[in-house]
């Protein structure tokens, strides 16, 4: 009795998720009349705009990840090591991007860093790209900080640092050779999640007028029929790959740890 009810609930949930996935896959294959084909994919992949925007978003994602690591790993480490009293405040701040909608943040950017302001970031292409990257880093902040901080919790930061210092290591060495490798799994998890967020992000890129993948998809959706479905399948594949990689590194690290 209980079992039947449970299977029912699960089936409903699975149907809810798989129907749209089936729907978009099916649609993406129907470009040629009367038969299934990969025409929509071919069309999308051959579109120079696709290549351009996708490349742009991948680059943005990579820079965001690098920037995030350089900003967050030292900070989280430092707070754990020297200023544990500050942790609640930092945690609160890192959760703010979940509270303040992205559209509001980017609205603030546009008003604060326009050409007539003290820091006219939107005045140049590089400046706008930089601003967009900072925006993405802000969006990823809750996930990245949490991942790194959780990773740091599992190692004894103080002892490791003191041991390294007693052997004559400097801060750069400690961070890059000791702390980073020990929280690598956490950092990678955060990185893949960041990648998944950045690659399809729409609001910030659209409002800053950057040629990113998200606005491209939206534009295509407004003008074409079958290609958007193919794009959705590709985007889903990327999300799935990112989550799969997170699982993989986590499992791999458990495996190696068990061997020690």
């Amino acid at each position: 009795m209980k079992r039947i009810w449970a299977w029912g609930a699960l089936t409903f949930g699975l149907l809810y998720f798989f129907l749209p996935l089936i729907g978009m896959t099916n649609f993406s294959l129907k470009m040629r009349r009367g038969e299934y084909s990969f025409d929509a994919y071919a069309r999308v992949l051959a579109d120079p705009k696709f290549q351009e925007t996708f490349g742009f978003s991948v680059m943005m994602a990579l820079f965001t990840i690098l920037f995030g690591i350089f900003l967050i790993v030292p900070t989280a480490y430092w707070v754990r090591l020297k200023m544990p009293g500050l942790r609640p405040y930092i945690e609160f701040v890192t959760l703010l991007p979940l509270v303040i909608p992205a559209i509001v943040i980017v609205f603030g950017y546009i008003r604060l860093y326009n050409t007539s302001s003290w820091l006219p970031l939107t005045g140049t292409t590089t400046g706008t790209n930089l601003l967009l990257m900072f925006g993405y880093a802000t969006l990823a902040l809750p996930y990245m900080y949490r991942a790194v901080d959780t990773g740091l919790r599992t190692i004894d930061v103080t002892t490791l640092t003191e041991a390294a210092q007693s052997l004559g290591a400097g801060w750069i060495t400690i961070l890059s050779r000791i702390i980073l490798p020990n929280v690598l799994v956490a950092v990678l998890s955060g990185a893949f999640l960041t990648f998944a967020i950045v690659i399809g992000e729409f609001t910030m890129a659209a409002l800053l007028n950057r040629p990113a993948f998200g606005p491209y998809m939206q534009l295509l959706g407004a003008n074409r029929a079958y290609e958007p479905a193919a794009l959705a399948v590709i985007a889903f594949g990327i999300t799935w790959a990112c989550m799969g990689l997170i699982q993989l590194v986590t499992r791999f690290s458990k495996h190696t740890r068990a061997q020690r």
Partner: peptide, 8 residues
């Protein structure tokens, strides 16, 4: 985001 809308 955008792809979800396409799926639906």
């Amino acid at each position: 985001g955008v792809p979800l809308a396409f799926a639906f």
